[in-house]
Computed example of a mutant assay.
Amino acid sequence: MKSLNFQAAIIDLDGTMVDTLGDFVVVLQHTLNDMGCHPIEIARVNRGFIELTVGKGTEDLLRRSLAHAWGLADDDAEVAAQVPEAWRHYQQHYTRLNGQHAEVFPGVVEGLQKLKAAGLPLACLTNKPTAFAQTLLERKGLRGFFDQVFGGDAFERKKPDPLPLLKTCEALGTLPARTLMVGDSSNDAQAAGAAGCPVVLVTYGYNHGEPIDRVSALAHIARLDELDLAPPISPGR
């Protein structure tokens, strides 16, 4: 891809840097067991289901997982009423298991090294709760690359709303138009477009089971280290 010139980069976590589907499956199955689900219901929440579901925050994931396990609609009142209890169980299990069934994607470490070598400040922006994101990055040896880490509970709204990107640009001290967003889904592309950030999408992520090449982006890359970056421009330009 052609050389890109930016002030900073914002990078998504799940599906972009780390394959966390294994974590989600194990944690959600423990959570459903705690909620009294039958083994057959628990087995419905598998890797294939999670790949279609993950990306819009923990509450959404829990609501959709409960509905799927129980064979109910996502907006069923009974499901909504059980989400707070499910969250309590989920939080306990995720705190214990975070990163144990997850792997860093090939090219991610090299890509982050490349970004830092180009002199770009980096932020991780994810819909995963901030504490979980911080711990995952630390356990996978990635935390040191990032100047800022923001999760889905850091701001009033989550991606695909543009607010998290705008707030992250403020924290980095950079202009949205000169801040690259790297993600794996239409969620990231929609948020970036609304915030005025250029976006590059990786082709190996989740994207709710839809082909990522159908989502408009500056580029689609098979590895994070395929990014070709020019030296950063000054914030005033």
Rank of each mutant, 00 (worst) to 15 (best):
R139H: 15
R143D: 06
A123C: 08
G151C: 01
L136N: 07
R139M: 14
A131Q: 09
Q134H: 14
G144R: 06
D153L: 07
L142C: 02
T126N: 02
L125S: 05
A123V: 05
R157I: 15
L136G: 08
R143F: 11
T126Y: 03
A123R: 04
K140E: 15
L120Y: 09
A131S: 10
K128A: 01
P129V: 00
A154C: 11
K128Y: 04
F155K: 10
R143S: 08
A123M: 05
A123H: 05
L142V: 04
F132E: 08
N127H: 11
N127M: 11
A154M: 05
F145S: 06
V149A: 02
L136E: 06
D153K: 10
F132T: 05
K140A: 14
L136C: 10
D147E: 12
E138I: 12
F145W: 07
A133T: 07
R139D: 14
E138S: 12
F150G: 03
R157P: 14
E138D: 12
G151S: 04
P129M: 04
G141K: 12
C124A: 04
T130N: 11
T126S: 07
K158P: 09
Q148E: 15
Q134F: 13
G141D: 09
A133K: 00
L136S: 09
A133W: 00
F155H: 10
V149D: 03
E138H: 13
A131Y: 05
D147Q: 13
V149S: 01
L120S: 08
K158A: 08
F132P: 11
L137E: 03
F146L: 02
D153V: 11
F155E: 06
L122R: 00
F155G: 08
F155I: 09
F132V: 09
L137W: 08
A123W: 00
F132W: 11
R157V: 15
E156G: 14
Q148D: 12
Q148C: 13
E156M: 14
R143I: 06
K158I: 13
A154Y: 03
D153P: 13
G151W: 00
G144P: 00
A123F: 00
R157A: 14
G144C: 02
F132A: 12
T130Y: 07
P121S: 05
A123T: 06
D153Y: 08
L137K: 04
F150Y: 10
P121C: 07
F145R: 07
K140I: 12
R157E: 15
F155T: 05
L142W: 11
F145V: 04
L125N: 05
F155R: 09
T135E: 13
D153H: 09
K128L: 00
Q148P: 01
F145D: 01
A131I: 08
G151N: 01
R143H: 11
A133S: 11
G144V: 01
A131D: 06
G141S: 10
K158W: 13
E156K: 14
F155Q: 09
L122Q: 00
E138V: 13
Q148T: 09
V149N: 00
Q148H: 13
P129F: 02
A123N: 05
T130W: 07
L136H: 07
C124M: 05
D147W: 07
V149I: 10
L120W: 07
R157N: 14
G141M: 11
E138L: 13
F155M: 10
D147R: 13
L136W: 06
R157Q: 15
T135K: 12
G144W: 01
F132Y: 12
A154S: 13
K128G: 02
L122A: 07
F146Q: 00
R139K: 15
L142E: 00
